[in-house]
């Protein structure tokens, strides 16, 4: 079976700072991978490389068997034109730490925008699908609310519905609950749990150890731009083998 995500020695640097020093990992279809690690460990940069929001400096990254953002000729990589990258991104949903809902659009308009403009779905069909998705994330009474009228948790749930509206094969979550008030974290995690149970392939950068342990199929601990440890979350997050993992967990738990 083709892995949904395959990373091979992925390197990324910002100027002289090397943020990713060779990340190699695979995510199988239907798997939920949780990436944990201290800030500055490169986990957010890595997840952004998966949909080419960041360019990589060396290595290879495939999503569902296709290189992301590049075309290979011989052993050289050439960056794809904007239109090609955009087409590939329609298969990869992303949820951001700070929601990034379109501020001039209502919740419903946020969700139907890309299906109508990118996938050319007829409007009434897009609206019906969007309402179903908003119902599914528990926002059936907020179709016409603007993002500024919604709580953080509600905004993040709209953002999840917006990503799902493109019917992606893979969902990326970049610290989806880090910007939320503590009492709003649960509602977002519940939606993500439901999504995992429906069989969606997910890569989740998170600090929620409990979520990673319960929902994750694989846990990856990153530090200093490398994967320190990976394995069953109930092992990695309960009895870590590596000293660095243990030190991190003792701080966050």
């Amino acid at each position: 079976m083709t892995p949904m995500v395959k990373a091979e020695a992925v390197h990324k640097r910002f100027g002289r700072l090397e943020v990713l020093k060779g990340i190699t990992l695979e995510v199988e279809p239907g798997q939920v991978m949780c990436i944990l690690g201290p800030s500055g460990s490169g986990k957010t940069t890595f997840i952004r490389c998966i949909n080419h929001l960041e360019k990589i400096d060396a290595g290879r990254l495939w999503v569902d068997g296709e290189l992301v953002g590049y075309r290979q000729v011989g052993d050289k990589l050439y960056e794809l034109p904007d239109r090609e990258v955009a087409r590939k991104r329609t298969e990869i949903g992303m949820v951001f730490q700070r929601f990034n809902l379109f501020g001039h659009m209502t919740a419903l308009e946020n969700v139907i925008e890309a299906p109508i403009r990118v996938k050319k779905v007829p409007k009434d069909e897009a609206v019906r699908a969007a309402k179903e998705l908003l119902d599914r994330v528990g926002l059936s009474d907020k179709y016409d609310a603007y993002p500024s009228q919604l709580s953080g948790g509600q905004q993040q749930r709209v953002a999840i519905a917006r990503a799902l509206a493109m019917q992606p094969k893979l969902m990326l979550f970049d610290e989806p609950t880090s910007a939320l008030d503590p009492e709003l974290v649960g509602e977002v995690l519940d939606v993500m749990r439901g999504l995992a149970e429906s069989g969606m392939t997910m890569v989740v950068v998170t600090h929620e150890i409990g979520f990673a342990r319960e929902v994750g199929d694989v846990a990856v601990f990153m530090d200093g731009g490398v994967v320190v440890e990976r394995g069953d979350p109930r092992e990695v997050l309960v009895n870590p083998r590596e000293e660095r993992t243990r030190a991190f967990l003792s701080k966050v738990l």
Partner: peptide
């Protein structure tokens, strides 16, 4: 970034 991640050019 949000627009691009949805596949918008």
């Amino acid at each position: 970034e949000a627009a691009q991640s949805l596949g918008m050019t």
